[in-house]
Amino acid sequence: MVLSNKNIMSIENIQNAFRRVEYICSKHIATTVYLAFQLNKPILVEGPAGVGKTDLAKKTAAFLDLPLIRLQCYEGLDESKSLYEWKYGKQLLYTQILRDKLNDIVREKNNLAESIDALHRYDDIFFSPQFLEPRPLLSALQHRGGSVLLIDEIDKSDDEFEAFLLEILSDFQISIPEIGTIKAESAPFVFLTSNNTRELSDALKRRCLHLFIPFPEAQLERDIINIKVPGLEDSLRFQLVSFIQHIRTLDIKKLPSISETIDWARVLLLLHAESLNAEVVRNTLNVFLKFEDDIAVVKDCLYELTQHALKEGHA
């Protein structure tokens, strides 16, 4: 059983396990993950784009050595795409192949009512598990030995889909009208992520633990860069993080998140930059700023920002 996995027996263990799979997490994240394991509850992860919400689920699957089953949400997602679908093709094929058999059954009967009665004895055959095509949610429930289920960007889906998830999230079971209720072999660990494009319903929130991942603090961000971009000089790493942290205090459309910091660090490594200077920054601004307006704003105060970062980097 997964719960006996010693990696999740304490908050420190979780933190270390994450570190081993190259995911640096704050105590906040580790504690919430620990609680989710112990209480067997889904985690609803919110936060700005690119702070590692999806990565959290991936890495959890990695250190628990469980398969990750991912369901990307979008408007119009419904149960036939998320839960199960009947294999219509197979059903049709089988009815064609078995036409003679069906004829045999019907032929012996004298009238219509009897024929239909005879067919009724068999009709469930075509709606049995053999004809069921499991989609992410169902396969997560059916996985022996557990799995990590990632329901990504739940805020993009419709209200109906959210309501439909409730049964799975609280009881880890689903009802299929033709077959009955399917219960999870072993409950999956569920992560839901949301970018907060709309407010989620209270019912959904009630069933989850809530984790808000903000932009990381400088120390944490440095650690992350250290792990993700190993070749980078210490001093440059300090300057870079300090620069990004300052950018986040500016009034721009899209704030750079960790993924952008990492990209920038990689770019600087490729360019063999030894320390930040206005020239290098100007040429690589577009790595972490994604809007023309934002770039213009930052360019205006580029020199001060760079100087500041240099000073803080040395301190």
Partner: peptide, 23 residues
């Protein structure tokens, strides 16, 4: 029950995860 009262910051994080559901 899981985390107890020993560590203030852990307690805070844990209760926040269970009770506060938005930023």
């Amino acid at each position: 029950d899981l985390v107890g009262y020993e560590d203030r910051s852990t307690l805070k994080i844990s209760l926040a995860a269970a009770l506060a559901k938005s930023a």
